[in-house]
Amino acid sequence: MGILADIAIGSGALLAAAYCMLLSRRLRAFTRLDGDVGRAIALLSKQVDQLTQALSAAEAGSAARERVLREQITAAEQAARRLELLMAADRPHAGKTTAAPPSADWSDASAEFEPLDRARAPEQRLRMTRTRTGTRA
Rank of each mutant, 00 (worst) to 15 (best):
M1Y: 04
G2N: 12
G2I: 15
I3S: 14
L4S: 13
D6N: 14
I7R: 12
A8Q: 08
A13G: 01
A16S: 13
Y19L: 13
L23Q: 14
L23K: 10
S24C: 09
R26L: 02
L27N: 07
R28A: 08
R32D: 14
L33G: 01
D34E: 11
D36Q: 14
V37S: 09
A40P: 01
I41Q: 05
S45M: 05
K46G: 10
K46P: 00
V48L: 01
Q50G: 04
L51A: 11
L51S: 06
L55F: 07
S56P: 00
S56V: 06
A58M: 03
S62P: 00
R65N: 05
R67F: 08
V68N: 09
A76L: 14
E77W: 04
E84F: 06
E84G: 02
L86T: 09
A89M: 11
D90R: 11
D90F: 01
R91C: 14
H93F: 13
G95T: 04
A100K: 10
A104F: 09
W106H: 09
S107L: 13
S107P: 00
L116P: 13
A119D: 13
R120M: 07
A121Q: 08
L126P: 00
R127P: 00
M128D: 12
T129L: 11
R130F: 01
T133L: 12
A137Q: 12
